[in-house]
Computed example of a mutant assay.
Amino acid sequence: MCYSAEAWALYDGYVKEFGADIDIKAFWELYLGRDERYRIRNKQSDGHKIPKGMDLNFLRPKTELERKIQDLIAEWNGTRLAESQAELDKQRERLAAAEQKLATKPTKTAANEQRIATNKIKQMERWIADAKRTSHQPSKDDRIFPLWYAPVLIVENGQPIVRPMRYLCRPQGSDPSTDYTKTGQVSGKYNARRDNLQKFWRRQFGSTHALMLAETFYENVDDGKGGSKEIQFRPRTGQTMYIACLYSHWTDPKGKEPDLWSFAAITDEPEPEVAAAGHDRTIINIKPEHAMAWLTPEGRSDEELFAILDDKRHPFYEVVKEAA
């Protein structure tokens, strides 16, 4: 399961690579929806999860709609900065109180308070610095997780188009509750198993295909000690991955919930080096020459589409780093 990836967040890359149009209206609706959902839920939700890299598309707006998106981003960041600064001040007070106690009467409780406050302060300082930064740092800014949004490439009416979609597919006809398991965990529908394409994913496979371009991907594997560790993989060739995806445009039959564009990355049996690192699936990285055929599945047989997946690239995914 590809639970996280460093995906292309700057959509100019898609324009240069494919001559793609940008669905700016969809980006505006996404940012507007994030702000509205946050307010409606009385700050009990983070709204839509959008990577910073996507915000940087609107650093220098050229149109009125892009300027509106820039304003929404500025308002959002301003609120987050104010909240982070308030939390930073709170944790500094907490640290000062803990250190005062340690100076007079050292206790485990005071030492624990000191440790927690120190870590929180470092975290808030990082968040504030990142929120203020305008330079692009892909490893920080472009990483997505399930329920996060990313620009993906599709073809509509013969024209490549970049549209923001959520990384966790909700097939049309599904109830929103199926985004989560019965225990409240995020469902696994951010990945579509190849051996399930003609079953669960039948309505998307052969109909609504997308591409996500990415530089690295991340997996959680067993650490051999009863826990897990995160492993980052990158193609040894340094080539951008063309990850085959399926998408759905979900609409609420009752008209109460907003429309949702969402997608899933297709996975297959693991490449040998990925299996050796402890993971049992690998995303399907198709060859660039198959990109347009994959994105235009209408009229193509299942055999032709599976042939594209069979002819995938095998760049050797080397381990970049491991984190406990």
Rank of each mutant, 00 (worst) to 15 (best):
E75R: 13
G33T: 07
H290V: 02
G184A: 12
L213F: 03
H279K: 04
A82N: 08
R193V: 00
N196W: 05
D175P: 01
K189T: 15
E64F: 11
Q44N: 15
F205N: 03
A210K: 01
R313S: 08
D130S: 10
V155G: 06
I24N: 02
D280Y: 10
A110E: 07
S139H: 04
D55T: 03
Y149W: 13
G53H: 02
E289S: 14
D195G: 04
Y242M: 07
R203C: 01
D142L: 02
P258V: 10
P106R: 10
W294Q: 02
L81T: 11
Q137I: 15
I283M: 05
Y11W: 15
T267S: 06
N191D: 09
E289Q: 14
F145M: 12
D195E: 15
I161W: 00
L56S: 00
P146V: 06
I50K: 03
N112Q: 13
R166W: 03
R163S: 04
K62A: 13
L197K: 00
P164I: 09
A192N: 07
Q70C: 01
D21W: 01
K52L: 11
H314Y: 12
R126F: 12
M241Q: 07
E273G: 00
E271T: 11
G227D: 08
Y218H: 11
N77R: 14
A323E: 14
L65C: 05
F205I: 07
V274Y: 04
K68Y: 01
D142K: 00
